[in-house]
Design a binder for these strands. Sequence first.
DNA 1: CCTCTATGGCGAA
DNA 2: TCGCCCTAGAGGC
Length: 320
Amino acid sequence: MPEGHTLRRLAQALDAAFAGTTPVATSPQGRFTEGAALLNGRAVVAASAWGKHLFVEFQGEQWLNVHLGLIGKFSVESYAPYAGAPPVWGQVRLRLLTADHVADLRGAAVCQVVSPEEVDAIVARLGPDPLRAEQDPDRAWARITKSGRPIAELVMDQSILAGVGNVYRCEVLYRNRVDPFRPGTEIRTRTWQAIWSDLVELMTLGVSFNQILTMQDQVEEAELLALEGRMPTLTSVDTDSARRSASGPAGVVATADGEDEDDEASGAGSPGGLESTGLERRYYVYKRQGEPCRVCGSRIRTQLVAGRNLFWCGRCQRRR
DNA sequence: CCTCTATGGCGAA
DNA sequence: TCGCCCTAGAGGC
């Protein structure tokens, strides 16, 4: 479920679990045997994310590059050493294993070992990432303002903006009342600035809460919770592999709990989980085709744009 | 239980 | 433009 915030969290989790360690790398599935052998026995330097690309630097200038694609999963968990390594289930392309942490990669669209030069080349193909501090939104603006393609296509083009996926695309255009079909050349500077700063705010919140939050009431509630330090998680992925035994909460932490990142698990309190933030999965337009717009009541529409289902309100986002 | 769908993007054709 | 990747939640039966 990778939009940029998910990859950012994944990088943080991998970094917390493996940086400074020398994991055993294997490919239980057998389709990445060669790459795993290349990484095996090398120390992990650091993990980072660029847009939807994940990079894990191993000692000796070997970089693991992963793109989860639509269905990929990369779980990171800790386990009790005395219990032994968790059994492999399903198609695990790559497993990284230390005495107390295990990461399993499944279903990724891209999984390869690359050189530093190749990392640079991949990053060079990406536009600015709203989740990276030093980014220059003007680089994206230069492309947008001279493109006749619809803005809904441009904001999801990873060479223009890195890390924005279909949910953020639909929601940010709605929040800013932008007609998704308006060509880049007709987007006003101020509109672009508003979109960029909105993405920075929303995606940052997405990292903190491990959930895409775009509705203003939820955004405000989440920012309040963040201020109080009541985010689900923060550091690490420290689930005890004993997971949610009856005893329950105990240590806390979680989200990333055990399994993957990905969308919350939605409502309903998780059984021993820890207080989820209680923020339900709710959007302005995403996947709401046919339902009334939450603001004006007109029917939310959908249409394939850039290969993904775009959702928008034809009235609120009317060309102005 | 089974079928459908999808918060992507690559590489072949 | 299409197939692949081959997961996992949602929804139907």
